[in-house]
Amino acid sequence: MGSLDTLLAAHRAYLLGWNIGVAGGPDLPTYRSEVPHATLNGVLRVAGRTPRDALVEARRRLHGVPRVWWVGPDSDAGTADGLLSLGAAEIARLPIMTVTIDAAAKVPTPTGLHITETTDLATFVAAYARVSGIPAGALTATTEREKAFTGDGTVLRLAGRLDDGQVVGTAVAWLSHGLVTLYFVGTQPEHRRRGIGAAMTRAALNLASERGARTAALTSSAIGEPVYRRLGFRPVGEFRILTF
């Protein structure tokens, strides 16, 4: 299993792939996509700065866009409490989960679901945006940022389509730092409870394994955690997601 530091570095590398602003240094890395959706702009860690100093600088870099603070094991102890004392609100706690790909459970692909890599970014983004809460008015900007995505790794985008071509499931596999981290794993609401999310996750693991990855990681929402646990993922840390 990869070290937690490596998992966190891979996570930072993915979100920095969205950045078109000032990234800063390792003490306060930030990413700014210009997409009006909080999780696509934010602060990735605070190391060696006081919360107040970090807040002043982050506000300068991220002014005008919704954003979040990812406060996890790679931030200084006390960062979350310090930001809360300055007026931040905690909006979620997300477990950081990992699994050795060879040990992950096998799951069936639902009848009529076809999972393949996709380059049809407009359709792909529209599907994950609906699940992730990205507003319809931001679809063009999000698609353009997907097209321009750059980073120290490889992005694999998987779409789960029904026989009629409708995209009902999505997953992004980010190969970096010797492992795969997963993003935008989602199922269209009217097609949930059919095993699509598990099948999308398993397909992403299979594809990453073919590319040489041995460990997978992700951050999970409350709705997704039971699915990932059934696949064998286990928590190794936590992000506290804050906003101002």
Rank of each mutant, 00 (worst) to 15 (best):
A9G: 08
V71C: 14
R49V: 00
T111S: 14
T119W: 08
V22M: 09
H114D: 14
F233G: 06
G25R: 11
T39K: 12
V172N: 15
G169N: 03
P226V: 04
V46H: 06
V22D: 15
G24M: 10
G82S: 07
G153S: 11
L28K: 05
D102E: 15
L113E: 01
G87M: 10
V227S: 05
G153E: 08
Y183F: 12
A159S: 15
K147C: 10
P51C: 10
V107L: 03
G112Y: 09
A173Q: 08
A208P: 01
G82E: 02
G195M: 08
T119Y: 10
F233K: 08
A122Y: 01
G17W: 02
L205E: 13
G42N: 09
R234I: 03
W174H: 14
E146N: 12
G160Q: 08
G112I: 06
V131D: 11
T109M: 06
A127L: 04
T142S: 14
L40P: 04
T219E: 14
L44V: 02
G25F: 02
R60Q: 14
T50K: 00
L242R: 10
V68H: 12
W174D: 09
M200R: 08
V107S: 03
P226A: 09
L182P: 01
G212Q: 11
A141D: 13
G48W: 08
R229P: 00
P36A: 15
D81P: 00
G232W: 03
V107G: 02
A92T: 00
L139I: 10
A159K: 09
R240F: 01
T100L: 13
A126G: 14
R202D: 07
H114I: 08
R230A: 11
V35A: 12
V125P: 00
E225N: 03
M97A: 13
D164Q: 07
D53E: 15
A89E: 13
T150L: 10
G2T: 13
M97F: 05
P226D: 05
L218H: 06
A38E: 14
L205A: 08
I241R: 09
A80C: 05
A126Q: 12
V168N: 02
G17P: 04
S3Q: 11
M200K: 07
G237F: 11
A105M: 04
L84S: 05
A148H: 09
F233I: 02
G82N: 05
V131Y: 06
L139V: 02
L8I: 05
R12G: 07
Y183T: 01
P226F: 07
W174V: 06
S3M: 06
E225P: 01
E190A: 15
A204R: 06
T243L: 06
E225V: 08
N19A: 13
N206C: 09
A204E: 07
L83A: 04
E117I: 02
I115G: 09
A58R: 02
V180M: 10
L16C: 08
L113S: 04
R61W: 04
L121Y: 12
A129P: 02
I196Y: 04
H191K: 09
A9K: 12
T6P: 00
L94F: 07
T201A: 13
H177C: 11
A88E: 11
A216Q: 05
V46I: 15
Q188A: 15
L8K: 06
R193M: 04
G17Y: 06
K147I: 10
R157Q: 12
V172W: 00
A127H: 05
A127K: 07
G169P: 00
R214P: 00
A213Y: 03
L179W: 04
L84F: 01
Y228A: 04
A103N: 11
N41D: 06
E210K: 15
